[in-house]
């Protein structure tokens, strides 16, 4: 278990540090790169939590697609090295965030969580690690939500196109 603990704490430090970097550094491009680090660290957490499939998806979609999209977007900003400026809400935002953190920590620590019974832990680990169960659930119990999400993605794609297409007379 030591290895797991060491990995966990290491990942925690990396993730929190990189996340702080995302919201604090001035250079927007570095922020984007630090965000990729956060994504990868979260993927690592997923592995630790025996959700291998999610870890792969995290790397593919977040670290791959979304991060790249964001990097493209960063290219828009005029002054990238000084693009990530704070606004005037730093203090209230920090206070709100700190208060929320306190509440969340208090709840997490105070709640009596119901652990998985020892007898079933093996079984649960097997099911969670493999992707077969997930695939089965997505096309059976959650089929409707699955279809809805697919429509949502289609709609989002069309919406993004419509937003970016420009006015007809300007289109080539």
């Amino acid at each position: 278990m030591l290895l797991v603990d060491i990995t966990f704490w290491g990942l925690s430090v990396v993730a929190i540090g990189a996340a702080l970097g995302v919201v604090l550094v001035r250079d927007l491009f570095r922020a984007a790169l630090l965000l990729v680090v956060v994504f990868l660290a979260v993927a690592g957490f997923f592995v630790l939590l025996s959700a291998q499939f999610l870890a792969v998806v995290q790397v593919l979609i977040y670290a791959g697609a979304i991060a790249i999209l964001l990097v493209f977007a960063v290219m828009l900003t005029k002054d990238v090295p000084h693009g990530n400026l704070p606004n005037r809400l730093q203090v209230p935002a920090a206070m709100v965030a700190a208060l929320l953190l306190a509440v969340l920590v208090a709840v997490a620590a105070a709640t009596q969580w119901q652990p998985v019974p020892l007898a079933q832990q093996e079984q649960v680990a097997v099911v969670q690690t493999g992707s077969a169960g997930l695939a089965n659930l997505l096309v059976s119990d959650y089929a409707l939500a699955f279809e809805a999400v697919s429509v949502l993605l289609l709609g989002a794609a069309i919406g993004a196109l419509a937003l970016l297409r420009g006015r007809p007379e300007q289109a080539p």
């Binding site: 927007l28 960063v74 929320l100 953190l101």
Partner: peptide, 26 residues
């Protein structure tokens, strides 16, 4: 929770809309 609150802070306190996006992703 720490990650969430960092993201919240970033979403509320950054000027650049892309940075806000990044925070929301966090």
């Amino acid at each position: 929770a720490i990650l969430f609150c960092i993201g919240l802070y970033g979403a509320l306190a950054r000027r650049n809309v892309i940075a806000v996006f990044m925070s929301i992703e966090i």
